[in-house]
């Protein structure tokens, strides 16, 4: 034993990596956040500043908390600092080869019983762990974006994951004040597997001209108490990411229900990727606010 959680390594300071780093630092743990180059570090640091300022403007945190969060995050470009980490998370995008490389780097440096966490929604933990010296310390955690707000995390047990490491991953989830959903490795786990066909079906409805995108979302919001409609949710997640997941799920399972709707492909090919490009199924301003809501879709009306 003698394992305590104080220092967390996070590899990748993209949208997910930054959000994770903020959440981890917010809970009082130290973060060592790795990007590939100084330029990427600088860019990510600016993005994080903006995200924290927006959080202040939305009353999620205070100025003092922002300072405390930033003071707990150390930015690096090398893997070295992960050697002293009690737990490390790979938070780069959903790319098998890239993740495999990272897992091996972490495995060669960290103490053998310190967990390596892979943040993924569709990739195989078992396959990523297979080549490690200590494959039993590799475990999956599917965090949902934004990590600062979503209360749930799927904790994924691979074929080789040990009970001890799985327990440690659950402990980490609890420290982050998240509700862990225990799942066995299977493409999509629970959340991604269930939400993708829903989004896909919503896109089909739009493509077939049954109803407009705005009306599809509004129907589900008002009818089933969704906070965000599935199409806006896809826009906010990034349509390229949604497409990527769906293609992967389709490949892995061969199930036609995961076959991406042609309209989704068309939008991605046209560079209409959702909130981040200002246009997807809906239009957004530079702060990410919807500019084309229906009159009945206004805040306060729902």
């Amino acid at each position: 034993m003698g394992w305590e959680l104080h220092d967390i390594g996070i590899v990748g300071a993209g949208m997910m990596g930054r959000s994770l780093a903020i959440k981890v630092a917010q809970e009082g743990l130290n973060v060592c956040l790795k990007e590939v180059s100084l330029e990427r570090v600088e860019a990510a640091r600016r993005e994080m500043e903006t995200a924290l300022d927006n959080a202040i403007a939305r009353f999620s945190i205070t100025e003092a908390e922002k300072k405390a969060i930033l003071s707990r995050i150390r930015w690096v470009t090398e893997f070295e600092c992960t050697a002293g980490c009690d737990l490390a998370i790979d938070a780069v995008q959903e790319d098998f080869e890239q993740k495999k490389e990272i897992v091996l780097e972490l495995d060669s440096r960290m103490r053998p019983d310190h967990p390596i966490v892979i943040n993924t929604s569709t990739l195989s933990i078992t396959e990523l762990a297979a080549k490690c010296r200590n494959p039993e310390r590799v475990v999956g955690m599917h965090f949902l974006y934004p990590v600062t707000r979503t209360r749930v995390v799927e904790v994924v047990r691979g074929q080789l994951t040990s009970d001890l490491v799985y327990e440690r991953a659950l402990e980490f989830a609890r420290i982050l004040d998240k509700v862990p959903i225990k799942v066995f490795e299977m493409p999509g786990f629970v959340t991604t597997r269930v939400v993708l066909p829903l989004i896909n079906e919503a896109i089909h409805v739009v493509m077939e001209g049954v109803a407009s995108a705005a009306e599809v979302d509004l129907a589900l919001k008002l009818g089933y108490d969704f906070r965000t409609g599935p199409l806006e949710w896809a826009d906010r997640t990034g349509l390229d990411r949604v497409l990527n997941w769906m293609q992967h799920m389709f490949q892995e399972t061969g199930e036609p229900r995961f076959r991406p709707c042609p309209l989704l492909k068309r939008l991605v090919r046209g560079g209409l990727l959702g909130t981040k490009t200002g246009r997807g199924f809906f239009r957004y301003d530079e702060k990410g606010r919807r500019t084309d809501r229906l009159p009945d879709d206004r805040p306060g009306m729902i």
Partner: peptide, 18 residues
């Protein structure tokens, strides 16, 4: 909460810290 689409946490922090 409705007008600004605030969460429970946000409205709570707004009243206590902002």
């Amino acid at each position: 909460m409705a007008m600004e689409e605030l969460t429970l946490h946000q409205i709570n922090t707004m009243l206590n810290k902002h």
